[in-house]
Nucleic acid binder design. Structure first.
Lengths: 110, 110
DNA sequence: TCGATATTTCGACATATATCGAAATATATG
DNA sequence: CATATATTTCGATATATGTCGAAATATCGA
């Protein structure tokens, strides 16, 4: 019936769960609107196009430990990638996942 | 920062919450893959391209009352539309919402 | 090494969710 | 009307989630 396997459906459900919290969705949008490398998979291009945990929590009125928890959820769902840079931990959206999501909703329309 | 207003973000979060349950996601995919009218908004085209509550619960191993609950969630989120036809209640995906979701993930990539 | 900054871990708690079964409601048909 | 089919409502329950605050860990700079 569906073009997706059962494990893929579960994975998409996990992704949507990660985006189902308004604060987490705001963090994701923060990253997606300012941080996705133009060149998919290009690692060097990441410089200056990611945000650290503190940045993501700013303007959100939640305590750092909660921000950390949310970021862990986004990461667990596979939506974002993370890497330590000195004191800070930088995050950026995984371009492959983003493309998968675009296809998920675009294909039934085409 | 984000191109979306606060109430739009909350609405998208509601939509993703509705899609965060595997069974609900399967129902949505069932509808989306066999039931979206080719002509957006065309009401007559809906004939034969929707599914009733019983259809959506089949192959899902959940009891009818649970199916009903899930459908109510999909409807509350604005993802599907419903209409009584005799004994059955037919459901189909709202094409406008589907397009909005496609744009949500597609725009940051373009 | 000490203090400042950034982040995570842990435990707690209130709220939300998924699911069931039983009973109620709506519709069609004999 | 009586019965069958389709769906919803309701109450219960077990589990998950969002958030906080306190304490722990990691890194940098003086």
């Amino acid at each position: 019936m569906s073009k997706y396997r059962d494990d893929q459906i579960k994975q998409f459900a996990e992704i949507f769960k990660a985006l189902s919290n308004p604060n987490r969705l705001r963090m994701f949008l923060h990253l997606v609107t300012c941080c996705v490398p133009g060149t998919v998979g290009s690692f060097d291009a990441k410089d200056g196009v990611s945000a650290c945990v503190g940045d993501l929590g700013r303007d959100l009125d939640i305590v750092p430990s909660t921000v950390s928890h949310h970021i862990k959820e986004l990461h667990r769902a596979g939506l974002i990638r993370m890497e330590r840079r000195g004191q800070k931990i930088e995050c950026w959206v995984d371009p492959v996942i983003l493309r998968g999501l675009a296809r998920f909703f675009d294909e039934p329309l085409t």
